[in-house]
Amino acid sequence: MFTTGFKFFFGLGMALAGAAVFYGYTTGGNHMGPLSMGWKGGIGEHLGYSLLLGLGVTAITVALFLVFFRDADPAAQAHYMGVEEIPTNSLVTASFWPVVGAFGVGAMAIGLVLHTAVFVTGLVVCGVVAIEWLMDSWADRATGDPEANRVLRNRVMAPIEIPALGAAMVALGVLATSRILLATSKLGSVVVAGVVSVLILCIAVLFVSKRRINRNILAGLVLVTAVAVLAGGVVATVTGERDFHHHEVDDEHDGADSVEGH
């Protein structure tokens, strides 16, 4: 379960964290300061405390990396695969998820500054990536046969992925496009809607007419479309909706209600 590398780094991390707490209390730390990183009370001598705690957190992070991904421990890999010696060629299959994860983290960072919705979207993407990543890591080591691993992984994940991905794409597309439509002028929204419809039609025709599409073209289409829709949605969200002119009757009615209410 736990590799030698994990045990070493985790033990080192805990020892350093303990040393930081000890150092904090012995150099003037008080109350819960050294235990709460200064949240409740003083931590003592700042430099040494920060250094020890920083080292400890770094070691624990490395330990978690080792146990989480496991692909840097040949002995553990061989044990899990039930073989004497691991294959010398690369076992880690190609995957979109690191790139998706990077975009998720990027969305979180941008959302932190610009809009909560973008941050939450990034957070959800990162959660999905974490699950997919774990499943890929498990499948890569399920047996010694890459093809069997791929089939196994798809058998478990495809029934979840395809509907979830489809729903997410529709929801994101609708949400982002609606933001764009609300932010642009009346005429602009008609143009945007027209262009989006034509694009969907063209891509659909391309899919139907070609038996095999070059994967680079496919990847490019997906990337450009995703970036365009998301960037447009983000910009439109930040810009805000255009001014809508309401009917005067409604305004008067609202006003009357308001007066009556008082």
Partner: peptide, 8 residues
């Protein structure tokens, strides 16, 4: 499990 391939 299948025997690991050592050929690259």
């Amino acid at each position: 499990p299948p025997v690991a391939e050592t050929a690259l």
